[in-house]
Design a protein around this nucleic acid. Structure first.
Lengths: 259, 259
DNA sequence: TATAGTTGTCTATATCAATAGACAAATTTT
DNA sequence: AAAATTTGTCTATTGATATAGACAACTATA
């Protein structure tokens, strides 16, 4: 932690801070990240004005134009709105908090936080199972698996992008059911699976790739949270292997204690 | 997902791919990320040679010198080793898998994966509680809290960087105990707390800031996984508020099902 | 011992990122 | 109405990023 003002009664963020140069990440992107973070953190109320550009430039130790680049990116992203002569204002404040645990479901997860939510099936295909997927699903490497590319949406915003694999023999035609119902849980019921659990979840993070950028409507350079999960029946039979990507700037994952 | 070769029997990664330009993230940093990802994914065995620079340049659609910049960063990071005339080789392959759940502890978490592990106390201070911390700890805003800056280490590598807050009244002197024992669990026992649970954990991700870069020995532009957690006694009394940062390239978080 | 393949170094050039300063345009405050 | 504040636009300059090509240095193999 850099030496910071910490006199009693002073303003304390509780978060570390400072900007790095010649890193491979441009200053304006770093500052955009920081502003997003501050907004998600509640440092600025909704509809509140950001500090003026000159003040931000001073705070981050950069030129005003650099701050302007950061703001321009966030304006294009729909997070901020700049008005000449008045100031720059916060449009959307909160990150969605996405529960994750043994009984994680997409729709159940966001209850109360959003009004509309569903999963869109982007594409489907059949392919041979890689080692990784075969092991997870307990089938032979090279056996046919159905691959679904989906996007989760809430209130018109894309909040997740997932790639899911099923054993093609056991779940033949699940892509049609998925396209029809828009729900994996409902689709699985057609195959006699009324309940399932998340056996394991592994979390990581990385820069979003081109496909995720497009599907999630992100600015290049954005970070995605990645979960790799195996779902199993109550008997422990693996049924689904999935890699989901969440935009870190819009979504946080909340671990539910017991569930 | 971009249109990709998917003929039966062909090589299929199961992961998306492609490089974005003028994003705020330099090409060499993106490529370094991708190579790290591929290594963590097991695409390259330990000690195996990477494809030659020209092949990588072609695969990613960039100049050979750009690939060289990415490799140079990974060499400095200790992930790769380049040998003139021979090739570039993978040194460390695996990411640590860090269990996280109701009973997450630092040392218990990495059992079996590493030989040596401990927490180093970097600094401590007393400050007034911000709204966020006060709410989490159930104390008044502005009340004194003890703040600990720590670094988790395993096998000589920094694997986590945390900022922890305790109620200063209830846990006066905990920084001394922490410095002495090198363990939060042990320190808490001195205050009569023999067991505690993780009440909530919220996960997010962002670019590492300057302090985390230094403490975790990361290259600028690296991504950190962030967990914000509240620990409570078995009676539900909140005792600890913590924000931990994990280098995404070295650590993944594994959700333990029941625990 | 050649030859091919690979990493290392150098020069040159074009574009992006960042700084600097000046001033216009719009809004709010005095 | 005037002044102060704030965002918007323009020009100019510097350094980092990326491309391009040539060749040296080193290793492994035919």
């Amino acid at each position: 932690m850099t030496t910071r003002e910490n006199a009693w009664g002073r303003w304390v963020t509780g978060l570390a801070s400072s900007i790095e140069r010649r890193n491979g990440v441009s200053l304006w992107r770093q500052i955009a990240d920081r502003i997003l973070q501050a907004i998600a953190n509640g440092d600025f109320a909704e509809n509140a004005a950001l500090p003026p550009e000159i003040a931000l430039a001073e705070r981050y130790g950069v030129n005003r134009h650099t701050v302007r680049s950061a703001i321009a990116a966030l304006v294009q992203e729909g997070v901020l709105k700049a008005e000449q002569g008045r100031g720059t204002f916060v449009l959307s404040r909160k990150r969605l908090s996405y529960p994750i645990g043994a009984r994680t479901r997409f729709s159940a997860g966001l209850q109360g936080q959003t009004t509309e939510r569903h999963i869109a099936l982007l594409s489907s295909s059949t392919e041979p199972a890689s080692r990784r997927i075969a092991d997870a699903l307990g089938i032979a490497k090279g056996a046919a698996v159905i691959r679904l590319e989906t996007r989760g949406e809430a209130d018109g915003h894309a909040v997740s992008r997932a790639t899911t694999w099923f054993d093609a023999k056991r779940f033949a035609g699940i892509e049609a059911a998925m396209a029809e119902t828009g729900s994996i849980t409902t689709s699985l019921k057609r195959f006699g699976i009324n309940d399932y659990l998340r056996q394991s979840t592994v979390l990581s993070a990385r820069h979003a790739d081109a496909d995720d950028l497009a599907a999630l409507d992100l600015q290049p350079g954005a970070i995605v949270l990645v979960t790799v999960a195996v779902n199993v029946t109550l008997d422990g039979e693996p049924i689904q292997f999935a890699e989901s990507r969440f935009p870190a700037e819009r979504v946080e994952l909340k671990l539910s204690a017991g569930d």
